Simulated scan of single mutants.
Amino acid sequence: MKKYIPKIVGFGINSVGILSPKYAAHLSMTLFSSPKKGKTNEKQANYLKEAKQDEVICNGITIKTYQWSGKKDTVLLAHGWESNTYRWKDLIELLKAEDYNVIALDAPAHGSSSGKLFNALIYSECIHAVAKKFNTSAIIGHSVGGMATAFGNYNFPLTQVKKLVLLGAPADFTGVFSRYIDMMGYNNRISKAMGKYVLARFNHLPEYFDAAKFTTNFKAKGLIVHDKKDRIIPYKDGLKFKQNYTNAEFLSTKGFGHGLKSELVYTHILDFLNT
């Protein structure tokens, strides 16, 4: 029964769209931007309490940050959808052992940060604010965190950011939207209304927000990692980044899925940061 719920909800929103496409678009976009999980639980909080905790206010949202101090460069970690800083636990320990100054943030509506809505554009502004405050030299983003990192580096480039790591990142908004629309079973009326909603809210249609193309002229060196068996973000998204991000190296993996939590991946990240 659970697998049919998105289609049932989508049918309801399609029905609303017959009378008011604009309101139906509002409902569909609110649903699209509302994470159902990702808040910090007790086990996670016990680990994170070892870090120095702070807050950054970004567009009225209180962003929770965590710091594990080190003498080397500052590395910022940006998690993905329905996750939080704890997902980086293994990598944090490796970075600490290398004496990096590690900063991580909980995205809007995730972890211990405030807010109810989340998308890559909102997130990109928050990542920028945190990177600026902590004088970050490298940013590692997973999934939507990777897409938001690319958006942020394009819209708000910081000269001190010299390296970017994009793990399983979506290449463009159109792909993300299309997978969401297919999952929910939205009709053409709703999909067109969603495009107009994005235009009104962010001044561009969804196809403008092409993270891979934005990387074309990035000065920061990049490391792109994507798994051939990623069932969340297609492998072709990683290849699109590879094609466009000319100042980046590409690591193709197989068997680590979307999470990319593996010793192999972490070794490549550390090698990339150390060079």
Rank of each mutant, 00 (worst) to 15 (best):
D237E: 08
G141S: 08
E50K: 15
Y266G: 00
A45F: 12
N101E: 06
W88V: 08
Y23E: 11
D182T: 13
D227K: 03
L251W: 08
D271F: 07
L158K: 03
Y197G: 00
V198Y: 07
G141L: 09
V9T: 11
S15T: 15
E42F: 13
S262M: 09
F256I: 10
Y47V: 10
H268R: 15
T149I: 09
A109L: 03
L251F: 09
V102A: 04
S28A: 15
L167K: 04
L223R: 04
I18L: 14
K196N: 13
L166H: 02
P35F: 13
K3M: 09
K43F: 12
F151N: 01
F151H: 09
H142V: 04
D230E: 09
D90Q: 11
Y123S: 03
G80K: 04
V198S: 00
N244E: 15
T253V: 10
K236G: 01
V144D: 02
S178Q: 14
K64Y: 03
K36C: 03
V198Q: 06
S15Q: 12
A97H: 10
K72S: 08
V198R: 02
G146C: 06
F250P: 02
D54K: 10
Q44M: 11
Y154L: 01
I61G: 00
E207D: 15
T62P: 00
T215C: 13
A45N: 12
D172G: 05
Y208F: 15
K36H: 11
I92Q: 00
G255I: 08
T246G: 12
K72Q: 11
V75C: 04
L167M: 13
G115M: 08
Y235G: 00
E249N: 12
I233Y: 05
F202Y: 15
Y266W: 13
K96M: 11
F218H: 09
M147A: 14
C58W: 01
G255D: 05
I122M: 12
L164S: 06
F173W: 14
